[in-house]
Amino acid sequence: MAGIVIVDYGMANLRSVQKAFERVGHAAVITSEPYVISQADRLVLPGVGAFQDAIARLRETHLDEPINAHINSGRPFLGICLGLQLLFSRSSEDGDHTGLNVLPGDVVRFENHPGLKVPHMGWNQLAFTGDCPLFRGIAPQSAVYFVHGYYAKPADPSIVSATADYPTPFAAAVWRKNLYATQFHPEKSQSVGLAMLKNFAEVC
């Protein structure tokens, strides 16, 4: 097995994620090779940019197949930002697009509210729900860094492991068995985010 593997499909600052894992004592490999991805002990799917472009690249490069196989195998998986959104059934960003459909639900745009800009950018506090291993040892109401104009609405609300307000609560993180995903960027969230990545690297 290949340890922690970060999926390279051309739509994220992968080195920043890799460096964050290194800072908490865990090496991570960046790759676009389906075989290496299929051999990962722990798989990370980051992402920045448009949903349509991202899902097209995953399918064109046949990376969707080892990603799905990894999740179905029960091995730990972490989606970050766009990497969370891609897990869902559909996105309404610039049209109607089908995602990986690992998690039933839709990705929708924030509604316009006076005084709030879209995309949502900057620090925001989390409210944890349940006992997600990703957040073990992290203080309630810890702040993390967001950059996104769309958010996921899971069909099953019980998978939401953290919420944030903008201005009403939205799914900031989801958790189902071996699958963890954050709408925020742990690699940009200083000590709080590093603690989450360490938790992921060491979760059983």
Rank of each mutant, 00 (worst) to 15 (best):
G149L: 12
V17P: 04
A152N: 00
G105H: 00
S161P: 08
L43A: 11
L86I: 07
L134S: 09
N13Q: 08
G149I: 01
L179P: 00
I80C: 08
A27N: 10
I55H: 05
L78D: 06
F88V: 00
E65V: 15
L179I: 11
P167W: 01
P133G: 14
K19V: 14
R15A: 13
S16P: 00
D53P: 00
A162F: 08
P34L: 11
I138K: 06
F51T: 02
L87N: 07
V29C: 12
R90V: 13
P66N: 05
R136Y: 10
I4S: 05
S92N: 03
Q85R: 10
W175E: 10
V107F: 08
K198S: 12
L45N: 05
K117P: 07
A195C: 10
L197Q: 01
A27S: 15
F77K: 04
H97R: 03
D53K: 11
T61D: 12
P154S: 03
V36N: 00
N101G: 12
A50E: 13
V203D: 09
Y180F: 15
W123D: 02
F128L: 14
D106I: 01
A69F: 02
S158N: 05
Q85V: 07
E60H: 11
H148D: 11
A195K: 14
F51L: 04
P66Q: 05
P157W: 02
S161N: 09
L197D: 07
S191W: 04
S161C: 13
A27C: 03
V7Q: 09
S89F: 00
G10W: 04
R59Y: 11
I80K: 09
E22N: 12
M196N: 05
V174A: 02
L116A: 14
I55K: 07
Q39V: 00
I4K: 03
K198P: 01
V118F: 11
H70Q: 08
N13S: 09
R57A: 15
H185S: 13
I30N: 06
L100G: 14
G74D: 09
A152I: 00
L103V: 13
L197I: 03
F77R: 06
G47K: 09
R176P: 05
S38I: 02
M1H: 12
N101M: 10
G83Y: 04
P34S: 08
D156T: 00
P169H: 03
R109H: 14
T163H: 03
G10V: 08
E202F: 06
T168Y: 09
A54H: 07
P46F: 06
L194M: 10
Y35A: 15
K198E: 13
L194F: 03
R176G: 02
A12E: 02
D64K: 05
D165M: 12
P167Y: 00
A54V: 10
F51Y: 10
R136F: 11
L179M: 04
V108D: 07
A2H: 07
A171D: 02
G99H: 08
D94N: 13
V29N: 02
P34F: 07
G25I: 06
V107D: 05
V5H: 03
L14Q: 10
V107G: 05
N101A: 15
Y180S: 15
V36H: 01
K188H: 08
G130V: 10
V29K: 13
I71V: 15
L87V: 00
M121A: 07
N72C: 08
